[in-house]
Amino acid sequence: MLRMAEALRRALNLGSSAESEEYTTEAGPPLLLLGGPGSGKTALLFTAALEAAGEGRGPVLFLTRRPLQSLPRGRGAALDPLRLQKIRFQYPPSTHELLQLLCSAHEARGPAPSLLLLDGLEEYLVGDWGPQEVAYLAALLLDTAAHFSHQIGPGQGCGLIVALQIQEQGDSGDALQLSLLQRYFPAQCWLQVDAQGPGQHCLRACLDPGGQGPRAEWWVAFRPDGEMTVTPWPAQAGNPSSDKGSSSEGQP
Protein backbone atom coordinates (compact mmCIF):
# COMPACT_ATOMS: atom_id res chain seq x y z
CA MET A 1 0.00 0.00 0.00
CA LEU A 2 1.30 3.44 -0.88
CA ARG A 3 1.83 5.88 1.92
CA MET A 4 -0.92 8.50 1.74
CA ALA A 5 1.52 11.26 0.84
CA GLU A 6 2.88 9.06 -1.94
CA ALA A 7 -0.64 8.39 -3.22
CA LEU A 8 -1.06 12.14 -3.65
CA ARG A 9 2.39 12.46 -5.18
CA ARG A 10 1.34 9.96 -7.82
CA ALA A 11 -2.02 11.70 -8.25
CA LEU A 12 -0.07 14.89 -8.92
CA ASN A 13 1.98 12.84 -11.40
CA LEU A 14 5.62 13.66 -10.89
CA GLY A 15 6.48 11.75 -14.03
CA SER A 16 7.76 8.70 -12.18
CA SER A 17 6.28 5.29 -12.80
CA ALA A 18 5.34 2.97 -9.97
CA GLU A 19 8.13 0.64 -11.01
CA SER A 20 10.79 3.35 -10.61
CA GLU A 21 9.68 4.46 -7.15
CA GLU A 22 10.21 2.72 -3.85
CA TYR A 23 7.09 2.83 -1.71
CA THR A 24 6.56 1.52 1.76
CA THR A 25 4.00 -1.23 2.23
CA GLU A 26 2.50 0.61 5.20
CA ALA A 27 -0.37 3.05 4.85
CA GLY A 28 1.46 5.88 6.60
CA PRO A 29 -0.10 8.76 8.54
CA PRO A 30 -3.62 9.94 7.68
CA LEU A 31 -3.66 12.93 5.37
CA LEU A 32 -5.82 16.07 5.33
CA LEU A 33 -6.44 17.64 1.90
CA LEU A 34 -7.17 21.36 2.37
CA GLY A 35 -8.38 24.05 -0.01
CA GLY A 36 -10.98 26.70 -0.68
CA PRO A 37 -14.03 26.40 -2.92
CA GLY A 38 -13.14 25.29 -6.45
CA SER A 39 -9.58 24.32 -5.54
CA GLY A 40 -9.68 20.87 -7.13
CA LYS A 41 -9.96 18.82 -3.93
CA THR A 42 -12.49 16.35 -5.33
CA ALA A 43 -10.58 15.89 -8.60
CA LEU A 44 -7.35 15.21 -6.74
CA LEU A 45 -9.06 12.90 -4.25
CA PHE A 46 -10.59 10.87 -7.07
CA THR A 47 -7.25 10.71 -8.89
CA ALA A 48 -5.68 9.34 -5.71
CA ALA A 49 -8.46 6.73 -5.63
CA LEU A 50 -7.60 5.68 -9.18
CA GLU A 51 -3.92 5.39 -8.28
CA ALA A 52 -4.70 3.20 -5.27
CA ALA A 53 -7.15 1.09 -7.29
CA GLY A 54 -4.36 0.34 -9.75
CA GLU A 55 -2.11 -1.17 -7.10
CA GLY A 56 -3.72 -4.58 -7.37
CA ARG A 57 -4.70 -4.66 -3.70
CA GLY A 58 -8.06 -4.16 -1.99
CA PRO A 59 -10.88 -1.86 -3.08
CA VAL A 60 -11.13 1.87 -2.36
CA LEU A 61 -13.99 3.26 -0.25
CA PHE A 62 -14.98 6.79 -1.33
CA LEU A 63 -17.39 8.60 1.01
CA THR A 64 -19.09 11.79 -0.14
CA ARG A 65 -22.40 13.47 0.56
CA ARG A 66 -23.57 13.43 -3.05
CA PRO A 67 -22.57 11.70 -6.32
CA LEU A 68 -19.76 13.30 -8.30
CA GLN A 69 -21.05 15.49 -11.10
CA SER A 70 -18.46 14.13 -13.52
CA LEU A 71 -15.34 11.97 -13.53
CA PRO A 72 -11.91 12.84 -14.87
CA ARG A 73 -11.64 11.69 -18.47
CA GLY A 74 -8.16 10.29 -18.04
CA ARG A 75 -5.77 8.73 -20.50
CA GLY A 76 -4.21 5.31 -20.72
CA ALA A 77 -4.80 3.20 -17.62
CA ALA A 78 -6.16 6.07 -15.52
CA LEU A 79 -9.82 5.27 -16.21
CA ASP A 80 -9.38 1.56 -16.75
CA PRO A 81 -12.82 -0.01 -16.05
CA LEU A 82 -11.15 -2.49 -13.70
CA ARG A 83 -9.87 0.41 -11.60
CA LEU A 84 -13.26 2.11 -11.56
CA GLN A 85 -14.91 -1.11 -10.43
CA LYS A 86 -12.64 -1.19 -7.38
CA ILE A 87 -13.85 2.23 -6.17
CA ARG A 88 -16.92 1.83 -3.94
CA PHE A 89 -18.91 5.03 -3.54
CA GLN A 90 -21.19 5.59 -0.56
CA TYR A 91 -23.23 8.75 0.03
CA PRO A 92 -24.11 9.36 3.69
CA PRO A 93 -26.47 12.37 3.43
CA SER A 94 -26.08 13.57 7.01
CA THR A 95 -23.65 13.60 9.90
CA HIS A 96 -25.78 11.04 11.73
CA GLU A 97 -25.66 8.62 8.81
CA LEU A 98 -21.92 9.13 8.35
CA LEU A 99 -21.37 8.25 12.01
CA GLN A 100 -23.61 5.20 11.62
CA LEU A 101 -21.69 4.05 8.55
CA LEU A 102 -18.34 4.36 10.32
CA CYS A 103 -19.58 2.69 13.50
CA SER A 104 -20.93 -0.27 11.52
CA ALA A 105 -17.81 -0.71 9.37
CA HIS A 106 -16.88 -3.86 11.28
CA GLU A 107 -20.12 -5.46 10.05
CA ALA A 108 -19.38 -4.88 6.36
CA ARG A 109 -18.82 -7.95 4.23
CA GLY A 110 -16.33 -8.41 1.44
CA PRO A 111 -12.65 -7.45 1.20
CA ALA A 112 -11.49 -4.60 3.41
CA PRO A 113 -10.61 -1.34 1.62
CA SER A 114 -6.95 -0.49 1.11
CA LEU A 115 -7.85 3.21 1.07
CA LEU A 116 -10.61 5.20 2.80
CA LEU A 117 -11.48 8.61 1.34
CA LEU A 118 -13.89 11.23 2.67
CA ASP A 119 -14.75 14.24 0.51
CA GLY A 120 -16.37 17.35 1.97
CA LEU A 121 -15.73 16.88 5.68
CA GLU A 122 -16.95 20.45 6.28
CA GLU A 123 -20.46 19.40 5.20
CA TYR A 124 -20.61 17.06 8.18
CA LEU A 125 -19.22 19.57 10.71
CA VAL A 126 -22.47 21.48 10.92
CA GLY A 127 -24.75 22.87 13.58
CA ASP A 128 -23.41 23.48 17.05
CA TRP A 129 -20.54 21.04 16.80
CA GLY A 130 -17.81 21.83 19.29
CA PRO A 131 -14.26 20.52 19.73
CA GLN A 132 -15.45 17.35 21.44
CA GLU A 133 -17.69 16.34 18.53
CA VAL A 134 -15.03 17.19 15.94
CA ALA A 135 -12.47 15.12 17.84
CA TYR A 136 -14.93 12.22 18.05
CA LEU A 137 -15.50 12.17 14.28
CA ALA A 138 -11.77 12.43 13.55
CA ALA A 139 -11.01 9.61 15.98
CA LEU A 140 -13.79 7.49 14.48
CA LEU A 141 -12.33 7.93 10.99
CA LEU A 142 -8.92 6.83 12.26
CA ASP A 143 -10.44 3.89 14.14
CA THR A 144 -12.29 2.78 11.00
CA ALA A 145 -9.09 2.87 8.95
CA ALA A 146 -7.31 0.97 11.73
CA HIS A 147 -10.05 -1.68 11.69
CA PHE A 148 -9.68 -2.13 7.94
CA SER A 149 -5.90 -2.34 8.41
CA HIS A 150 -6.36 -5.13 10.94
CA GLN A 151 -8.54 -7.00 8.44
CA ILE A 152 -5.99 -6.61 5.66
CA GLY A 153 -3.13 -7.88 7.77
CA PRO A 154 0.22 -6.69 9.15
CA GLY A 155 2.61 -4.66 7.04
CA GLN A 156 -0.05 -3.37 4.64
CA GLY A 157 -2.88 -1.36 6.14
CA CYS A 158 -5.69 0.92 5.01
CA GLY A 159 -4.82 4.52 4.22
CA LEU A 160 -6.99 7.52 5.05
CA ILE A 161 -7.35 10.82 3.16
CA VAL A 162 -9.97 13.42 4.15
CA ALA A 163 -10.76 16.56 2.12
CA LEU A 164 -11.81 19.70 4.00
CA GLN A 165 -12.91 23.01 2.50
CA ILE A 166 -11.46 26.02 4.27
CA GLN A 167 -12.26 29.71 3.94
CA GLU A 168 -9.67 32.47 3.58
CA GLN A 169 -11.55 34.58 6.10
CA GLY A 170 -12.65 31.87 8.51
CA ASP A 171 -13.83 32.71 12.02
CA SER A 172 -12.22 31.59 15.26
CA GLY A 173 -14.42 28.49 15.35
CA ASP A 174 -13.15 27.35 11.94
CA ALA A 175 -9.56 27.94 13.04
CA LEU A 176 -10.14 25.88 16.18
CA GLN A 177 -11.64 23.02 14.16
CA LEU A 178 -8.71 23.03 11.74
CA SER A 179 -6.15 23.11 14.54
CA LEU A 180 -7.86 20.17 16.19
CA LEU A 181 -8.07 18.15 12.98
CA GLN A 182 -4.38 18.74 12.27
CA ARG A 183 -3.55 16.87 15.47
CA TYR A 184 -5.23 13.78 14.05
CA PHE A 185 -3.94 14.24 10.49
CA PRO A 186 -0.18 14.97 10.63
CA ALA A 187 0.23 14.83 6.84
CA GLN A 188 -1.43 17.65 4.90
CA CYS A 189 -1.76 18.90 1.34
CA TRP A 190 -2.80 22.53 0.78
CA LEU A 191 -4.43 23.66 -2.47
CA GLN A 192 -4.39 27.40 -3.13
CA VAL A 193 -5.93 29.20 -6.09
CA ASP A 194 -3.16 31.02 -7.94
CA ALA A 195 -2.81 33.17 -11.06
CA GLN A 196 -5.35 32.47 -13.78
CA GLY A 197 -3.96 31.62 -17.20
CA PRO A 198 -5.87 32.11 -20.47
CA GLY A 199 -8.85 29.77 -20.21
CA GLN A 200 -7.29 27.96 -17.27
CA HIS A 201 -7.91 27.56 -13.56
CA CYS A 202 -4.53 27.48 -11.79
CA LEU A 203 -3.64 26.20 -8.34
CA ARG A 204 -0.60 25.76 -6.17
CA ALA A 205 -0.39 22.42 -4.37
CA CYS A 206 1.85 22.12 -1.29
CA LEU A 207 2.35 18.66 0.21
CA ASP A 208 3.71 18.15 3.73
CA PRO A 209 3.93 14.39 4.38
CA GLY A 210 4.08 14.84 8.15
CA GLY A 211 7.72 13.98 8.68
CA GLN A 212 7.56 10.94 6.38
CA GLY A 213 9.52 12.56 3.56
CA PRO A 214 10.38 15.88 1.89
CA ARG A 215 7.84 18.59 1.25
CA ALA A 216 6.91 19.24 -2.37
CA GLU A 217 5.00 21.82 -4.40
CA TRP A 218 3.38 21.90 -7.84
CA TRP A 219 1.54 24.19 -10.23
CA VAL A 220 -1.80 22.62 -11.18
CA ALA A 221 -3.77 24.01 -14.14
CA PHE A 222 -7.27 22.90 -15.15
CA ARG A 223 -8.25 23.56 -18.75
CA PRO A 224 -11.85 24.15 -19.88
CA ASP A 225 -11.98 20.62 -21.33
CA GLY A 226 -11.12 19.15 -17.90
CA GLU A 227 -7.45 18.33 -18.53
CA MET A 228 -5.28 18.73 -15.45
CA THR A 229 -1.70 19.80 -16.22
CA VAL A 230 0.83 19.49 -13.40
CA THR A 231 4.28 21.12 -13.26
CA PRO A 232 6.69 20.61 -10.34
CA TRP A 233 7.50 23.79 -8.45
CA PRO A 234 9.73 25.80 -8.79
CA ALA A 235 10.92 24.57 -12.19
CA GLN A 236 8.07 26.40 -13.94
CA ALA A 237 7.48 29.05 -11.27
CA GLY A 238 7.66 31.83 -13.81
CA ASN A 239 5.02 30.25 -16.04
CA PRO A 240 2.24 28.45 -14.14
CA SER A 241 0.24 27.95 -17.32
CA SER A 242 3.02 26.07 -19.07
CA ASP A 243 2.13 22.82 -20.78
CA LYS A 244 5.50 21.39 -19.82
CA GLY A 245 5.78 18.76 -17.16
CA SER A 246 3.55 15.80 -16.51
CA SER A 247 -0.19 15.76 -16.93
CA SER A 248 -3.27 13.75 -16.18
CA GLU A 249 -6.96 14.35 -16.61
CA GLY A 250 -9.43 15.77 -14.12
CA GLN A 251 -11.49 18.76 -13.18
CA PRO A 252 -11.78 20.94 -10.10
Rank of each mutant, 00 (worst) to 15 (best):
Q156C: 11
S246K: 02
Q188W: 09
A53F: 08
A221M: 04
P59R: 11
H150I: 06
A163I: 03
A216F: 00
Q90F: 00
Y91F: 15
E122L: 14
T24R: 02
Q100W: 14
F62D: 07
L71C: 05
Q236A: 15
Q251E: 05
P232N: 04
S94V: 04
P92H: 13
Y91R: 07
T231D: 06
A195P: 00
P37V: 07
G155W: 05
G15N: 05
Q165G: 14
T25W: 02
L137Y: 06
L99H: 13
Q165N: 11
I161L: 08
P81N: 15
Q151D: 08
G56P: 03
A235V: 10
K41M: 09
C206G: 02
T229H: 15
W190V: 02
G54Y: 10
A18P: 01
L71K: 13
Q69C: 00
Y23C: 00
P72I: 07
G238N: 12
L207A: 03
S248F: 06
V230E: 04
L141Q: 09
Q69S: 08
G35S: 10
N13K: 06
P67T: 02
A139N: 13
R204D: 01
H147F: 14
V126D: 09
G250R: 09
Q132M: 13
L125T: 07
S70W: 14
